[in-house]
Design a binder for these strands. Structure first.
Length: 266
DNA sequence: TACAATGTTTTAAG
DNA sequence: CCTTAAAACATTGT
């Protein structure tokens, strides 16, 4: 489900527990969410620690605890982060529950495509420090984006936008929103994009990201009907810009929605 | 029933 | 080493 704006929203849910001790840790030891992480070590080390801070970068989250303990989190397709009353029992898909006196901090993920990792040290884990520049950072410049376009010459532009090593946090709906906004067909190969197209996509990426963070990332508000977002999920709905029927198909391996009039194929 | 779901990883080929 | 495409992952809802 979650892309960068939803991740930002979820990250903040645990703020209710900041500065408070983790009195107990409940987890499903064989959950796929832990993968290479040892869940028992994670449980031992987080128990008794104070929850200090959280960070989000693209679709990745990092939670900091006292004593140099760090919890990495990725929500995959179906992950959620929530806060429940202190007497919350561990439910079927609650793969990690951090129990505090006033509430429980819960990581829930029924499909288990998400990920939980553990790290100990003064510094954040290596993988966190190596993440690519965020799309709203200074480093993610027009020129840097043009370089990405060249590197992915043979792939549909939608595939480039979904490349987490280049546009961390952009996911399926944001990619469609960005291309719809600048009127570019998602199946266009990157090598066929001109400099003006590249700049337009860069600009739309930043705009959609900023707006999504403001509207969804803060309160999970509904995007306005002027966005593609509210029209893309169901078949047969109309483009909010020109009224034409929207098209759907698989591009770059993902279900894609576009307006055949606003986003004419090259 | 069968397919699709806002995501990554692995595998294989170029 | 890099890019690209396809299958796999696990569960739920239509």
């Amino acid at each position: 489900m979650p892309e960068l704006a939803e991740v930002e929203y979820y990250r903040k849910q645990w703020d209710a527990g900041l500065g408070q001790k983790v009195s107990d840790v409940r987890l499903h030891e064989k959950s796929r969410n832990f993968r290479e992480t040892d869940p028992r070590l994670l449980r031992d080390r987080l128990k008794g620690r104070i929850y200090r801070a959280s960070y989000a970068h693209g679709k990745n989250m990092l939670f900091q605890f006292s004593g140099g303990a760090w919890l990495g989190g990725h929500l995959g397709m179906s992950g959620k982060i929530l806060v429940t009353p202190p007497d919350h029992g561990q439910e079927k898909h609650d793969h990690l529950v951090l129990v505090q006196r006033k509430q429980c901090l819960v990581f829930s993920d029924y499909r288990m495509f998400g990920r939980l990792t553990f790290h100990e040290g003064k510094q954040p884990p290596e993988w966190w420090r190596e993440l690519p520049p965020e799309v709203l950072s200074r480093e993610f410049s027009k020129a840097a984006f043009a370089t990405h376009v060249r590197a992915r010459a043979g792939s549909p532009v939608k595939g480039l936008l979904l490349d987490q090593g280049r546009l961390p946090g952009i996911g399926n709906w944001m990619a469609d929103e960005i291309l719809w906004k600048c009127g570019i067909y998602p199946g266009v190969r990157c090598r066929d994009l001109g400099a003006a197209d590249s700049d337009a996509i860069w600009k739309a990426t930043r705009k959609v990201t900023r707006d999504a963070l403001r509207i969804i990332g803060t309160n999970w508000g509904d995007p306005p009907d002027s966005w593609l977002f509210n029209h893309r999920w169901k078949k047969g709905l109309a483009c909010p810009r020109c009224g034409s029927g929207l098209d759907r198909g698989e591009i770059a391996g993902r279900t894609t929605c576009w307006c055949p009039r606003c986003q004419a194929e090259f």
